[in-house]
Each structure stands twice: as C-alpha cells, then as structure tokens.
Design a protein around this nucleic acid. Structure first.
Lengths: 238, 238
DNA sequence: CAGTATCCGATGCGATACTG
DNA sequence: CAGTATCGCATCGGATACTG
C-alpha cells in the first residue's frame, strides 16, 4: 500500500499540501478527527464505507506529515490519535470545504446516503448535555423506513457522556422519537425545520418539557446554519 | 474517461464537495483559474505536467458542477473559461490550503520541481505594471543552472500586458538578471530575501533606477508573505 | 478491540497521436 | 491553437481474512 501518491512536481504550497489533503477519504478522516474522534473505531464509525486497511494507511500518512500524533495506549492495546497544532489549523480548510459544498451543491440526499448508524453517530456527537436534566436521559429512535434490524436506536445521555446503541440498553426510556431516516437527516442538515416537520413522519412521545427542549439539546450539523444558494442565482460574478 | 469518481456515500457537505475538489489536479486547476487564466493553453502552462486530455476532463467536471462557464470564442475556435460565483467562492478554500502548506510543510524545493518555464509564467502573472515606467520594459533572465536551451528568457512588459518568451523578442533589453532557477524560486517563494540574495548567484545589470525598483514591480508569490512555522515548534496544541 | 496482510479487480490517468 | 481519441499500464483501494 502506502507509497505516497505521485507528486505534482510543483513547489507551490497549494500543490504540496494537496498531495496530502486530497488523497481519497483524507478530508473525511480529518473531519472526524476535528469533530473529536481519537480512536480507530470511532473514526471507522464516521467513515463506515472506508476499509480499515485504508484508514490505517491514511492515519500513517497524516502522522508522517505531522498532522496527528499517535500515542500507544496502556498495554500497547489501543492507540490514541490526536491532532497536532498543524492538524488543528486544518479546521478552517475542512470547514470552508463544507460551507462551500453546502452553499453550492444543491443535490438532495440520495437514498444510498441514508445510513441510520452514521446519522445516529453524528447526532450523538453533537448532543448538548448541558441542556438536559442532570440525570440519565434515554431517547429511543424508531426509523420507519429501514429494515427492522436497524430501525431501533437508543441514545443514552448522562453526565458528560453520550452513547448510541442498537440494542436496548435496559434503562427506562424517557423519550420516543418515531420518524424516517430521510426526514431526520434533512432536519439534521438544516433542510427542514424541526417544528415544521412534526406530523405523520415525525412523532415525539414523552414528557412535554423534554420534548419541547429537544431542539436545544439535539444540536444540528455544524453546517445546518449555512443556507444553500438558491438555484436561480445568476452564475457569473463579474 | 469521465464518470465522476466513486462517491463517498455520505450526504455531509464535506464529503460531497470533496468528491469534486479532491480529484487529482483539480486544486491546481482552480488555483490557475483563480489566478486569472481563462484559456486552455494558459491553464496548461500553469500545470505543465498534466495531460491535455485530463485537463479537458477536469474542466468539463468543473463546468458541470457550476464552478466555471465555458464560452465558445469567435468562430468556434477557442473557448473561454470563467469562474462563476461558486468558483470565485472557492478562492478562500484554495488559499487556505496554500497557507497551510506553506506554514506546515517545511521540505525545501526539490530539484525536479525547478521548472524555469513555470517559474517565468508565474512571475509574469504577478508583475505589477503600474510600478514600471510607462513604456515598454524588457527584462532578460539568464539561468545558469539549466540546459542552454532553457536558460534565456525575456519578460516584455508594456501597457497593461506582460509576456514571457523563450526567444529573443527583438526589442532592446533594459535589464539583465543572471541567477539560478533555484535561487529565483526561493526568492519568489519568500524563502530568501531579494536584497540579501544579491551576490555571485544573483546579478542585476542595467539602469540603477529600474534595478532598485525591481522588488516593487516583480511581485512575489501570493504565499511569500506567509512565514513557515519553525520546525522546533511543539506539536500538540492541547 | 485495533488494527495488519494479502490479493485482485477496476479505473484513473499518463503517453502518444491525431484533428478541425 | 484548442482540444479529442485511443490504449494500456500502474496503482489505488475494496473485500476478506487474519492476528496479538
């Protein structure tokens, strides 16, 4: 594997940086690292379609480039990947790419992009625990548009920690959300406003206070606030 | 050819945008477009190692994505590629990539990256005509570290126009610059300060006023002002 | 759990030649 | 000049199985 991609043969910083940053999957791996993932399998959850060997290769390349450090965990078991300052300074790059994509690529969400596991993982990471009562809160999601096996998910939210599980965690459920993956994804991306989505495809059941505060603790994608440029906009700026 | 690269299978804007932006050569083509190139062969000069068929394919992809428009020239001869507003908004993305590369990738310029044609082309495009006398100015560059065939270059600078040629343009030369491609590239990248470089590897001959004002009209790379982070800097930010 | 090893298939892309 | 057509190889990376 490895052997860095062929060089562009130019010393221009755009070329040199692109040799690293534009390798396949690398921007998404960086997105995950910037979102806070530090372990191999956390990263995998964020890029489920990437093969583990390729992820390992990319992490090696990023380490070699000084973007991350790898620290052996206790007992040599699990490594911890952390962004260096160089890596942290890639945040504006990745963010800008996302903002541009949101503004200018107006194709909707494709069916094959609707992965409940990925969506739950993304949502979980954006949960604002502070906005929840200071006890354990369990939220059950039921997706009506996926096969039975992947239709039930639980979010277990307690002191400084949020977990997703596909199996009933055994704790009593506080809130029931019944919807489709598509609608939930559209809400999460800011394409549909939460309150307007309530209806046959989005039903919330449970204590009123918890339900009403949902938009506060279930924070949307970081790109949800970026409004797409309407298709009718004239193309040329100059 | 064509058939867009395989999708990442995620609706995240970073993923969607990356499918376009991280195709091989695309960031460099965008850099060229943003620098002002509008014709196929102008673009080729900026990415000389890219095959013409691939450049055509990338331009097609950028057009399809709404980043550029292609306008047929008179007589259907030459097309003109212009950035749309979407394309213009990629400027911060490409710039950030370059700034990051300059700050954090500290490898020097490799021998095989020293292409006098590309360097002259880049320099020509950054010439500040306003800072020159309002008449034609001809500058001859002699590079002492390349084969004879590519050692002599002329810059012809006149009213609103700058041209490079490898053949003597026939006009009287106003200024003679004798140096190496390496040193000139290092100066142009801001790695070496011009005045400090004067010596055996950089000799300027000609009228004093023109020679002294050279740093004003021969503007350096847009990344020359970005100072690399010294290698000794501690790695982790947090 | 946290990766590594291997293998093979698709395809991206470089080289070259050609055309209006 | 401004691209297009064709071809074939290299290599990237996906799938799968395996290991400490």
């Amino acid at each position: 594997m490895a052997e860095s991609a062929k060089s562009y043969g130019q010393f221009c910083p755009v070329a040199v940086a692109s040799e690293l940053l534009t390798q396949r999957w690398t921007p998404l791996v960086l997105r995950e690292l910037l979102a806070g993932s530090t372990h191999f399998n956390q990263l995998r959850r964020g890029v489920p379609l990437m093969s583990p060997s390729l992820l390992a290769a990319r992490l090696r390349a990023l380490e070699e480039a000084g973007v991350i450090t790898r620290r052996e965990g206790e007992g040599g078991r699990q490594s911890e990947y952390r962004l260096t300052q160089a890596g942290e300074e890639l945040r504006p790059v990745i963010e800008q790419i996302g903002v541009w994509g949101r503004r200018w690529i107006q194709r909707g969400i494709k069916d094959e992009e609707l992965d409940p596991a990925l969506l739950m993982w993304d949502m979980q990471r954006r949960i604002n625990i502070e906005a929840l009562p200071a006890r354990r809160v369990v939220v059950r999601f039921e997706f009506t548009d996926v096969e039975r096996k992947f239709s039930l998910w639980w979010l277990v939210l307690e002191a400084g920690q949020a977990d997703v599980c596909l199996a009933d965690p055994g704790f009593p459920t506080d809130l029931w959300v019944t919807t489709t993956v598509r609608l939930m994804a559209e809400i999460w991306m800011g394409e549909v406003e939460f309150r307007r989505a309530l209806g046959p495809d989005l039903v919330i059941a449970g204590p009123r206070s918890l339900a009403r505060s949902l938009p506060d603790w279930l924070q949307l994608s970081v790109f949800a606030g970026v409004k797409p440029v309407p298709p009718g906009t004239p193309k040329t700026a100059r």
